[in-house]
Design a binder for these strands. Structure first.
Lengths: 213, 213
DNA sequence: GCGGCAATTATTCAAGCGTATAATAACGAT
DNA sequence: ATCGTTATTATACGCTTGAATAATTGCCGC
Protein backbone atom coordinates (compact mmCIF):
# COMPACT_ATOMS: atom_id res chain seq x y z
CA UNK A 1 0.00 0.00 0.00
CA UNK A 2 1.49 3.33 -0.99
CA UNK A 3 0.48 5.49 1.93
CA UNK A 4 0.74 9.25 1.46
CA UNK A 5 3.09 10.07 4.24
CA UNK A 6 4.33 13.62 4.05
CA UNK A 7 8.01 14.16 3.36
CA UNK A 8 10.07 16.01 5.93
CA UNK A 9 13.62 16.90 6.77
CA UNK A 10 15.48 16.04 9.90
CA UNK A 11 16.53 19.25 11.55
CA UNK A 12 19.18 19.73 14.20
CA UNK A 13 17.95 19.66 17.75
CA UNK A 14 18.71 23.34 18.35
CA UNK A 15 16.97 24.37 15.18
CA UNK A 16 13.85 22.37 15.87
CA UNK A 17 13.59 23.53 19.45
CA UNK A 18 13.91 27.10 18.28
CA UNK A 19 11.19 26.63 15.70
CA UNK A 20 8.83 25.06 18.19
CA UNK A 21 9.40 27.80 20.74
CA UNK A 22 8.89 30.50 18.16
CA UNK A 23 5.69 28.83 17.02
CA UNK A 24 4.53 28.63 20.61
CA UNK A 25 5.06 32.35 21.13
CA UNK A 26 3.31 33.14 17.88
CA UNK A 27 0.30 31.09 18.87
CA UNK A 28 0.04 32.63 22.32
CA UNK A 29 0.40 36.14 20.96
CA UNK A 30 -2.24 35.56 18.35
CA UNK A 31 -4.88 33.62 20.21
CA UNK A 32 -3.85 33.52 23.83
CA UNK A 33 -2.76 30.61 25.93
CA UNK A 34 -6.04 28.96 25.11
CA UNK A 35 -5.17 28.97 21.45
CA UNK A 36 -1.70 27.62 21.99
CA UNK A 37 -2.65 23.99 21.60
CA UNK A 38 -0.22 21.29 20.70
CA UNK A 39 -1.77 20.94 17.29
CA UNK A 40 -1.81 24.66 16.52
CA UNK A 41 1.79 25.04 17.56
CA UNK A 42 2.87 22.04 15.56
CA UNK A 43 1.06 23.23 12.48
CA UNK A 44 2.66 26.64 12.69
CA UNK A 45 6.08 25.08 13.16
CA UNK A 46 5.45 22.96 10.10
CA UNK A 47 5.53 19.65 11.90
CA UNK A 48 3.00 17.28 13.39
CA UNK A 49 1.88 17.29 16.98
CA UNK A 50 3.68 14.21 18.16
CA UNK A 51 7.05 15.82 17.61
CA UNK A 52 6.61 18.17 20.49
CA UNK A 53 6.90 15.37 22.96
CA UNK A 54 10.11 14.30 21.34
CA UNK A 55 11.77 17.56 22.27
CA UNK A 56 9.93 18.40 25.46
CA UNK A 57 8.58 16.20 28.19
CA UNK A 58 5.22 17.88 27.72
CA UNK A 59 3.47 21.01 26.69
CA UNK A 60 4.15 22.73 29.99
CA UNK A 61 7.88 22.44 29.66
CA UNK A 62 7.70 23.96 26.21
CA UNK A 63 5.70 26.87 27.55
CA UNK A 64 8.35 27.52 30.14
CA UNK A 65 11.08 27.51 27.52
CA UNK A 66 9.03 29.97 25.51
CA UNK A 67 8.58 32.25 28.52
CA UNK A 68 12.30 32.22 29.17
CA UNK A 69 13.08 33.12 25.60
CA UNK A 70 10.59 35.94 25.49
CA UNK A 71 11.77 37.55 28.74
CA UNK A 72 15.46 37.42 27.95
CA UNK A 73 14.63 38.84 24.54
CA UNK A 74 12.98 41.88 26.08
CA UNK A 75 15.74 42.69 28.53
CA UNK A 76 18.46 42.08 26.01
CA UNK A 77 16.84 44.42 23.50
CA UNK A 78 17.02 47.27 26.00
CA UNK A 79 20.56 46.43 27.07
CA UNK A 80 21.67 46.22 23.45
CA UNK A 81 20.28 49.68 22.85
CA UNK A 82 22.03 51.00 25.94
CA UNK A 83 25.57 49.85 25.23
CA UNK A 84 25.68 51.88 22.06
CA UNK A 85 25.68 55.06 24.08
CA UNK A 86 29.06 56.72 24.51
CA UNK A 87 28.59 58.24 27.95
CA UNK A 88 26.94 56.79 31.01
CA UNK A 89 24.24 59.41 30.65
CA UNK A 90 23.60 58.43 27.04
CA UNK A 91 23.49 54.78 27.96
CA UNK A 92 20.93 55.43 30.67
CA UNK A 93 18.87 57.53 28.29
CA UNK A 94 18.98 54.93 25.56
CA UNK A 95 17.97 52.21 27.99
CA UNK A 96 14.94 54.14 29.16
CA UNK A 97 13.85 55.10 25.69
CA UNK A 98 14.31 51.59 24.33
CA UNK A 99 11.86 50.30 26.91
CA UNK A 100 9.05 52.56 25.76
CA UNK A 101 9.72 52.30 22.05
CA UNK A 102 9.03 49.57 19.51
CA UNK A 103 9.83 46.76 19.29
CA UNK A 104 9.54 46.53 23.07
CA UNK A 105 6.25 48.42 23.03
CA UNK A 106 4.44 46.01 20.82
CA UNK A 107 0.98 44.48 21.21
CA UNK A 108 2.38 41.06 20.55
CA UNK A 109 4.96 41.40 23.29
CA UNK A 110 2.38 42.68 25.73
CA UNK A 111 -0.01 39.88 24.96
CA UNK A 112 2.70 37.32 25.56
CA UNK A 113 3.90 39.01 28.71
CA UNK A 114 0.44 39.16 30.24
CA UNK A 115 -0.38 35.60 29.32
CA UNK A 116 2.69 34.37 31.14
CA UNK A 117 2.19 36.66 34.12
CA UNK A 118 -1.24 35.21 34.62
CA UNK A 119 0.32 31.77 34.83
CA UNK A 120 2.75 32.73 37.53
CA UNK A 121 0.19 32.08 40.26
CA UNK A 122 -0.69 28.71 38.85
CA UNK A 123 2.68 27.21 38.10
CA UNK A 124 5.56 28.12 40.44
CA UNK A 125 8.18 27.46 37.76
CA UNK A 126 6.85 30.46 35.91
CA UNK A 127 7.28 32.55 39.03
CA UNK A 128 10.92 31.55 39.19
CA UNK A 129 11.50 32.55 35.60
CA UNK A 130 9.84 35.89 36.21
CA UNK A 131 11.83 36.60 39.33
CA UNK A 132 15.06 35.75 37.57
CA UNK A 133 14.39 38.23 34.80
CA UNK A 134 13.03 40.98 37.00
CA UNK A 135 16.22 40.85 39.04
CA UNK A 136 18.31 40.94 35.88
CA UNK A 137 16.43 44.01 34.69
CA UNK A 138 16.80 45.69 38.05
CA UNK A 139 20.50 44.97 38.14
CA UNK A 140 21.05 46.28 34.64
CA UNK A 141 19.29 49.47 35.61
CA UNK A 142 21.21 49.76 38.85
CA UNK A 143 24.50 49.37 37.02
CA UNK A 144 23.57 52.09 34.56
CA UNK A 145 22.54 54.36 37.41
CA UNK A 146 25.70 53.82 39.41
CA UNK A 147 27.84 54.59 36.38
CA UNK A 148 25.79 57.66 35.65
CA UNK A 149 26.10 59.09 39.15
CA UNK A 150 29.80 58.41 39.12
CA UNK A 151 30.16 60.18 35.80
CA UNK A 152 28.24 63.14 37.22
CA UNK A 153 30.42 63.02 40.32
CA UNK A 154 27.30 62.81 42.40
CA UNK A 155 27.53 60.77 45.57
CA UNK A 156 24.63 58.36 45.94
CA UNK A 157 24.57 55.48 48.39
CA UNK A 158 24.10 52.03 46.98
CA UNK A 159 20.90 51.76 49.00
CA UNK A 160 19.55 54.88 47.37
CA UNK A 161 20.67 53.55 44.01
CA UNK A 162 18.59 50.46 44.53
CA UNK A 163 15.55 52.50 45.51
CA UNK A 164 16.01 54.61 42.42
CA UNK A 165 16.29 51.47 40.31
CA UNK A 166 13.04 50.14 41.73
CA UNK A 167 11.19 53.37 41.07
CA UNK A 168 12.60 53.76 37.60
CA UNK A 169 11.83 50.19 36.79
CA UNK A 170 8.26 50.65 37.98
CA UNK A 171 7.85 53.82 35.98
CA UNK A 172 9.27 52.26 32.85
CA UNK A 173 7.12 49.17 33.23
CA UNK A 174 4.04 51.25 33.79
CA UNK A 175 4.66 53.49 30.81
CA UNK A 176 5.45 50.49 28.69
CA UNK A 177 2.18 48.94 29.75
CA UNK A 178 0.05 51.98 29.13
CA UNK A 179 1.83 52.95 25.98
CA UNK A 180 1.32 49.53 24.53
CA UNK A 181 -2.26 49.09 25.69
CA UNK A 182 -3.35 52.51 24.54
CA UNK A 183 -0.88 53.14 21.75
CA UNK A 184 -3.34 55.33 19.90
CA UNK A 185 -3.54 57.73 22.84
CA UNK A 186 0.09 58.73 22.60
CA UNK A 187 1.90 60.55 19.83
CA UNK A 188 5.07 59.05 18.46
CA UNK A 189 7.69 60.48 20.80
CA UNK A 190 5.31 61.47 23.58
CA UNK A 191 5.89 58.37 25.63
CA UNK A 192 9.67 58.54 25.40
CA UNK A 193 9.67 62.23 26.31
CA UNK A 194 7.38 61.64 29.23
CA UNK A 195 9.61 58.79 30.37
CA UNK A 196 12.75 60.91 30.21
CA UNK A 197 11.35 63.90 32.03
CA UNK A 198 9.83 61.62 34.65
CA UNK A 199 13.18 59.97 35.16
CA UNK A 200 14.78 63.38 35.47
CA UNK A 201 12.30 64.25 38.17
CA UNK A 202 12.72 60.94 39.98
CA UNK A 203 16.49 61.36 40.07
CA UNK A 204 16.21 65.06 40.92
CA UNK A 205 18.07 66.16 37.80
CA UNK A 206 17.72 69.47 36.01
CA UNK A 207 14.85 69.49 33.53
CA UNK A 208 16.30 68.51 30.19
CA UNK A 209 19.48 67.16 31.68
CA UNK A 210 18.79 63.67 30.41
CA UNK A 211 16.75 64.34 27.32
CA UNK A 212 18.88 67.05 25.76
CA UNK A 213 21.79 66.11 23.57
CA UNK B 1 -39.27 6.33 38.95
CA UNK B 2 -38.02 8.54 41.76
CA UNK B 3 -35.00 10.17 40.16
CA UNK B 4 -32.49 11.79 42.45
CA UNK B 5 -32.64 15.27 41.13
CA UNK B 6 -30.90 17.75 43.42
CA UNK B 7 -33.05 20.31 45.14
CA UNK B 8 -32.38 23.95 44.40
CA UNK B 9 -33.72 27.36 45.08
CA UNK B 10 -34.80 29.91 42.55
CA UNK B 11 -32.72 33.02 43.03
CA UNK B 12 -33.37 36.49 41.73
CA UNK B 13 -31.69 37.34 38.48
CA UNK B 14 -29.35 39.91 40.04
CA UNK B 15 -28.33 37.53 42.78
CA UNK B 16 -27.62 34.65 40.43
CA UNK B 17 -25.66 36.79 38.02
CA UNK B 18 -23.59 38.10 40.89
CA UNK B 19 -22.87 34.60 42.13
CA UNK B 20 -21.87 33.40 38.69
CA UNK B 21 -19.56 36.35 38.14
CA UNK B 22 -17.94 35.93 41.52
CA UNK B 23 -17.43 32.26 40.84
CA UNK B 24 -15.90 33.11 37.49
CA UNK B 25 -13.40 35.47 39.09
CA UNK B 26 -12.56 32.91 41.75
CA UNK B 27 -11.89 30.26 39.14
CA UNK B 28 -9.69 32.52 37.03
CA UNK B 29 -7.73 33.72 40.02
CA UNK B 30 -7.15 30.21 41.24
CA UNK B 31 -6.38 28.31 38.10
CA UNK B 32 -6.16 30.80 35.28
CA UNK B 33 -8.42 31.31 32.35
CA UNK B 34 -7.76 27.73 31.39
CA UNK B 35 -9.29 26.57 34.63
CA UNK B 36 -12.33 28.77 34.28
CA UNK B 37 -14.45 26.20 32.53
CA UNK B 38 -18.19 26.31 32.46
CA UNK B 39 -18.36 23.30 34.74
CA UNK B 40 -15.83 24.59 37.26
CA UNK B 41 -17.55 27.91 37.49
CA UNK B 42 -20.96 26.32 37.88
CA UNK B 43 -19.74 23.99 40.59
CA UNK B 44 -18.23 26.85 42.54
CA UNK B 45 -21.40 28.86 42.18
CA UNK B 46 -23.37 25.87 43.45
CA UNK B 47 -25.33 25.33 40.27
CA UNK B 48 -25.04 23.14 37.22
CA UNK B 49 -23.38 24.11 33.99
CA UNK B 50 -26.44 24.61 31.91
CA UNK B 51 -27.57 27.53 33.99
CA UNK B 52 -24.82 29.73 32.73
CA UNK B 53 -26.39 29.87 29.32
CA UNK B 54 -29.61 30.91 30.88
CA UNK B 55 -28.09 34.11 32.21
CA UNK B 56 -25.48 34.77 29.58
CA UNK B 57 -25.50 34.15 25.87
CA UNK B 58 -22.28 32.23 26.29
CA UNK B 59 -19.15 31.85 28.32
CA UNK B 60 -17.48 34.82 26.65
CA UNK B 61 -20.15 37.26 27.68
CA UNK B 62 -19.84 36.09 31.26
CA UNK B 63 -16.09 36.62 31.15
CA UNK B 64 -16.63 40.17 30.00
CA UNK B 65 -19.04 40.86 32.82
CA UNK B 66 -16.48 39.47 35.24
CA UNK B 67 -13.76 41.69 33.80
CA UNK B 68 -15.96 44.74 34.17
CA UNK B 69 -16.72 43.95 37.77
CA UNK B 70 -13.11 43.35 38.66
CA UNK B 71 -11.85 46.57 37.10
CA UNK B 72 -14.46 48.84 38.61
CA UNK B 73 -13.78 47.16 41.94
CA UNK B 74 -10.11 48.10 41.78
CA UNK B 75 -10.61 51.72 40.85
CA UNK B 76 -13.40 52.18 43.32
CA UNK B 77 -11.32 50.80 46.15
CA UNK B 78 -8.70 53.48 45.56
CA UNK B 79 -11.28 56.24 45.15
CA UNK B 80 -13.05 55.16 48.31
CA UNK B 81 -9.79 55.42 50.21
CA UNK B 82 -9.14 58.85 48.76
CA UNK B 83 -12.38 60.58 49.65
CA UNK B 84 -11.76 59.98 53.32
CA UNK B 85 -8.92 62.47 53.26
CA UNK B 86 -9.71 65.93 54.58
CA UNK B 87 -7.42 68.00 52.39
CA UNK B 88 -6.68 67.63 48.70
CA UNK B 89 -3.15 66.68 49.63
CA UNK B 90 -4.39 63.96 51.97
CA UNK B 91 -6.75 62.66 49.33
CA UNK B 92 -3.97 62.43 46.79
CA UNK B 93 -1.74 60.69 49.30
CA UNK B 94 -4.42 58.21 50.26
CA UNK B 95 -5.14 57.45 46.64
CA UNK B 96 -1.52 56.70 45.88
CA UNK B 97 -1.03 54.58 48.96
CA UNK B 98 -4.23 52.63 48.43
CA UNK B 99 -2.96 51.54 45.05
CA UNK B 100 0.17 49.94 46.44
CA UNK B 101 -1.40 48.45 49.54
CA UNK B 102 -3.61 45.42 50.08
CA UNK B 103 -6.23 44.62 49.04
CA UNK B 104 -5.25 46.19 45.73
CA UNK B 105 -1.81 44.62 45.90
CA UNK B 106 -3.00 41.08 46.07
CA UNK B 107 -1.86 38.02 44.12
CA UNK B 108 -5.44 37.18 43.31
CA UNK B 109 -6.11 40.61 41.86
CA UNK B 110 -2.92 40.51 39.84
CA UNK B 111 -3.68 37.09 38.47
CA UNK B 112 -7.10 38.22 37.37
CA UNK B 113 -5.82 41.43 35.91
CA UNK B 114 -3.13 39.72 33.85
CA UNK B 115 -5.48 37.04 32.62
CA UNK B 116 -7.83 39.65 31.25
CA UNK B 117 -5.08 41.81 29.81
CA UNK B 118 -3.84 38.87 27.83
CA UNK B 119 -7.27 38.56 26.28
CA UNK B 120 -7.40 42.14 25.13
CA UNK B 121 -5.58 41.33 21.91
CA UNK B 122 -7.84 38.41 21.17
CA UNK B 123 -11.27 39.86 21.87
CA UNK B 124 -11.82 43.55 21.10
CA UNK B 125 -14.64 43.84 23.60
CA UNK B 126 -12.09 43.32 26.34
CA UNK B 127 -10.03 46.14 24.93
CA UNK B 128 -13.02 48.45 25.22
CA UNK B 129 -13.56 47.52 28.84
CA UNK B 130 -9.93 48.13 29.60
CA UNK B 131 -9.86 51.47 27.87
CA UNK B 132 -12.96 52.59 29.70
CA UNK B 133 -11.44 51.84 33.08
CA UNK B 134 -8.01 53.19 32.30
CA UNK B 135 -9.57 56.50 31.35
CA UNK B 136 -11.63 56.50 34.52
CA UNK B 137 -8.51 55.91 36.59
CA UNK B 138 -6.64 58.63 34.75
CA UNK B 139 -9.47 61.05 35.22
CA UNK B 140 -9.76 60.33 38.93
CA UNK B 141 -6.06 60.97 39.29
CA UNK B 142 -6.23 64.14 37.23
CA UNK B 143 -9.06 65.46 39.37
CA UNK B 144 -7.11 64.79 42.53
CA UNK B 145 -4.07 66.49 41.07
CA UNK B 146 -5.94 69.57 39.94
CA UNK B 147 -7.50 69.99 43.36
CA UNK B 148 -4.14 69.49 45.00
CA UNK B 149 -2.40 72.13 42.89
CA UNK B 150 -5.24 74.54 43.52
CA UNK B 151 -5.00 73.94 47.23
CA UNK B 152 -1.27 74.59 47.07
CA UNK B 153 -1.94 77.68 44.98
CA UNK B 154 0.42 76.34 42.38
CA UNK B 155 -0.40 77.15 38.79
CA UNK B 156 -0.27 74.11 36.54
CA UNK B 157 -1.69 73.98 33.03
CA UNK B 158 -4.30 71.34 32.35
CA UNK B 159 -1.95 69.87 29.76
CA UNK B 160 0.75 69.51 32.33
CA UNK B 161 -1.79 68.05 34.72
CA UNK B 162 -2.60 65.38 32.23
CA UNK B 163 1.06 64.57 31.68
CA UNK B 164 1.51 64.30 35.42
CA UNK B 165 -1.48 62.02 35.65
CA UNK B 166 -0.06 59.74 33.01
CA UNK B 167 3.32 59.56 34.71
CA UNK B 168 1.82 59.01 38.12
CA UNK B 169 -0.53 56.41 36.81
CA UNK B 170 2.36 54.60 35.17
CA UNK B 171 4.44 54.74 38.31
CA UNK B 172 1.61 53.49 40.46
CA UNK B 173 0.79 50.71 38.07
CA UNK B 174 4.40 49.67 37.87
CA UNK B 175 4.90 49.67 41.62
CA UNK B 176 1.65 47.81 42.07
CA UNK B 177 2.82 45.23 39.58
CA UNK B 178 6.26 44.74 41.06
CA UNK B 179 5.08 44.90 44.61
CA UNK B 180 2.53 42.23 43.98
CA UNK B 181 4.72 39.98 41.89
CA UNK B 182 7.64 40.16 44.27
CA UNK B 183 5.87 40.88 47.53
CA UNK B 184 8.57 39.15 49.54
CA UNK B 185 11.19 41.60 48.25
CA UNK B 186 9.58 44.59 49.88
CA UNK B 187 9.07 45.37 53.53
CA UNK B 188 5.63 46.31 54.72
CA UNK B 189 5.59 50.06 54.16
CA UNK B 190 8.53 50.17 51.76
CA UNK B 191 6.39 50.20 48.66
CA UNK B 192 4.08 52.95 49.90
CA UNK B 193 7.00 55.09 50.97
CA UNK B 194 8.74 54.60 47.69
CA UNK B 195 5.54 55.50 45.90
CA UNK B 196 5.08 58.70 47.87
CA UNK B 197 8.64 59.93 47.52
CA UNK B 198 8.56 59.08 43.83
CA UNK B 199 5.37 61.07 43.41
CA UNK B 200 6.94 63.95 45.27
CA UNK B 201 9.83 63.88 42.84
CA UNK B 202 7.61 63.57 39.80
CA UNK B 203 5.56 66.58 40.90
CA UNK B 204 8.68 68.49 41.97
CA UNK B 205 7.52 68.80 45.57
CA UNK B 206 9.73 69.18 48.61
CA UNK B 207 10.91 65.83 49.98
CA UNK B 208 8.41 64.78 52.62
CA UNK B 209 5.81 67.24 51.48
CA UNK B 210 3.36 64.50 50.62
CA UNK B 211 4.37 61.76 52.99
CA UNK B 212 4.64 63.81 56.18
CA UNK B 213 1.61 64.38 58.31
C1' DG C 1 -53.74 23.80 47.44
C1' DC C 2 -53.23 23.87 42.79
C1' DG C 3 -51.93 25.31 37.84
C1' DG C 4 -48.70 27.22 35.05
C1' DC C 5 -44.57 29.55 34.12
C1' DA C 6 -39.71 29.49 33.88
C1' DA C 7 -35.48 28.73 36.53
C1' DT C 8 -32.80 24.91 37.11
C1' DT C 9 -31.12 20.24 36.44
C1' DA C 10 -29.81 16.36 33.70
C1' DT C 11 -28.26 14.47 29.60
C1' DT C 12 -26.41 14.43 25.23
C1' DC C 13 -23.33 15.87 21.33
C1' DA C 14 -19.59 16.97 18.43
C1' DA C 15 -15.21 18.99 18.61
C1' DG C 16 -10.86 19.55 20.46
C1' DC C 17 -7.55 18.63 24.01
C1' DG C 18 -2.78 16.34 25.63
C1' DT C 19 -0.62 12.19 25.48
C1' DA C 20 0.83 7.49 24.15
C1' DT C 21 2.22 4.22 20.78
C1' DA C 22 3.37 2.19 16.41
C1' DA C 23 4.79 2.75 11.69
C1' DT C 24 7.96 4.98 8.60
C1' DA C 25 11.33 7.60 6.16
C1' DA C 26 15.54 10.44 6.38
C1' DC C 27 20.19 10.46 6.83
C1' DG C 28 25.04 9.32 8.58
C1' DA C 29 28.12 5.53 9.08
C1' DT C 30 29.98 1.84 6.89
C1' DA D 1 24.51 0.57 -1.74
C1' DT D 2 22.94 -0.97 2.45
C1' DC D 3 22.07 -0.80 7.26
C1' DG D 4 20.78 1.06 11.71
C1' DT D 5 19.43 4.74 14.15
C1' DT D 6 16.08 7.92 15.31
C1' DA D 7 13.59 12.08 14.05
C1' DT D 8 9.24 12.40 12.35
C1' DT D 9 4.57 11.12 10.95
C1' DA D 10 0.27 8.89 11.67
C1' DT D 11 -3.25 7.08 14.32
C1' DA D 12 -5.71 6.09 18.31
C1' DC D 13 -7.38 6.80 23.08
C1' DG D 14 -9.63 8.71 26.99
C1' DC D 15 -11.07 13.15 28.74
C1' DT D 16 -12.74 17.64 28.85
C1' DT D 17 -14.67 21.33 26.64
C1' DG D 18 -18.85 24.72 25.36
C1' DA D 19 -23.21 24.30 23.78
C1' DA D 20 -27.89 22.42 22.80
C1' DT D 21 -31.96 20.05 24.27
C1' DA D 22 -35.23 17.69 27.20
C1' DA D 23 -36.97 16.78 31.68
C1' DT D 24 -38.20 18.50 36.14
C1' DT D 25 -39.11 21.17 40.15
C1' DG D 26 -39.57 25.41 42.76
C1' DC D 27 -42.53 29.10 43.36
C1' DC D 28 -46.08 32.86 42.56
C1' DG D 29 -50.81 34.17 41.58
C1' DC D 30 -55.03 32.56 42.15
Amino acid sequence: MTENRRTYHRASEAERREDLITATLDCIAESGIQGATVRQIATRAGVTGGLIRHYFTGKDQMLQAAYRKMMTGMTEAAIAAAIEGETAKARLRRFIVANVTPPVTDPRTLSLWAAFISHIQIDPSFAAIHRENYLAFLEALETLLTAFFKEEQRLVSSDQCRRYAISLSALVDGLWLEGTLAADMFADRELAENALSSVEALLHLQPGELSDE
